[in-house]
């Protein structure tokens, strides 16, 4: 359980099957990194590289709405046919308030 966090929520990542325990107020990526899970990123939390994005498969209602920084970044996915009809969020920004299932290629337990 992340230190100092009272509530722990589960983010299940497909297709690798990894479960990330996310504390209240923590970003999904920060939680993953804290648990030795590799999550693709270049800018390490600045919402600039967009590399950490994931697709929400279940439980979209359990995610906090994106803040200004993430909203700007998500505009890069809007209107692009590849992402049409998909709920896309940035792992470095997204906070959860319930269980969520996401799809993200490249996530794995660091060896």
């Amino acid at each position: 359980m992340p230190r100092g966090c009272r509530v722990v929520l589960n983010v299940h990542v497909q297709p690798c099957g990894v479960d990330v325990e996310v504390g209240e107020g923590q970003s999904v990526m920060a939680a993953a990194e804290g648990q030795g899970i590799f999550w693709p990123t270049v800018c390490h939390g600045l919402a600039e590289c967009h590399t950490c994005f994931f697709e929400v498969m279940e439980g979209a209602e359990h995610l906090e709405p994106p803040d200004g920084l993430e909203e700007v970044a998500l505009q890069r996915f809007a209107g692009r046919s590849w992402y049409e009809g998909k709920v896309i969020r940035l792992a470095c920004q997204a906070r959860v308030r319930g269980s969520v299932v996401v799809r993200k290629l490249g996530v794995r337990r660091a060896s």
Binding site: F38, P40, T51, L105, G106
Partner: peptide, 10 residues
């Protein structure tokens, strides 16, 4: 630099 492996992207 992303640390991805073949199969990690489409």
């Amino acid at each position: 630099r992303l640390g991805l492996q073949p199969g990690d992207y489409d």
